[in-house]
């Protein structure tokens, strides 16, 4: 590689230190204005890009139920189901579709008759008795 003796070397001079380039009139004032507009656009785009993600997070949070309310709802539904279950029985050998009331009505016609009477109003009974007379 070529050795450079910096101490012996003189600063170069090519007859000019000017480039001869010029700039359009008013360029720098116009440039600063257009740059301000570009920065405004940049900031507005940034806000637009950030806004949907913030909104969606808020919406997501507003739709989310707290865990304890979900657990309480499940427990309530289960409790109601157990309480009002028509198939519940104390007989451990009963089939799944066991319906004690219907079976009793079939086996004991007197009982079914009395239950049917029980479902009638007093007015219906009197009306039936007097109609027979």
């Amino acid at each position: 590689m070529k050795q450079i003796k910096m101490n012996d070397w003189k600063e170069p001079d090519f007859g000019t230190r000017e480039t001869g380039m010029k700039v359009p009139d008013g360029f720098f004032a116009d440039f600063q204005q257009s740059l301000e507009l570009k920065i405004d656009e940049l900031e507005a785009r940034k806000v637009r890009e950030e806004a949907p993600s913030i909104l969606s997070e808020q919406q997501h949070r507003s739709h989310r139920l707290p865990w304890w309310s979900v657990a309480a709802s499940v427990a309530l539904i289960a409790g109601l189901f157990v309480w009002f279950n028509p198939a519940k029985t104390t007989d451990p050998n009963a089939p799944e579709s066991y319906m004690p009331v219907a079976e009793a009505m079939v086996e004991n016609s007197d009982l079914s008759e009395s239950m049917m009477l029980a479902s009638l109003s007093d007015y219906d009974i009197y009306e039936a008795l007097y109609a027979e007379d």
């Binding site: 090519f14 000017e18 001869g20 010029k22």
Partner: peptide, 13 residues
């Protein structure tokens, strides 16, 4: 079009 230098400046560039 925004160059109006002389021949030396043009050659240097």
């Amino acid at each position: 079009k925004y160059f109006d230098g002389d021949e030396t400046q043009r050659t240097l560039l």
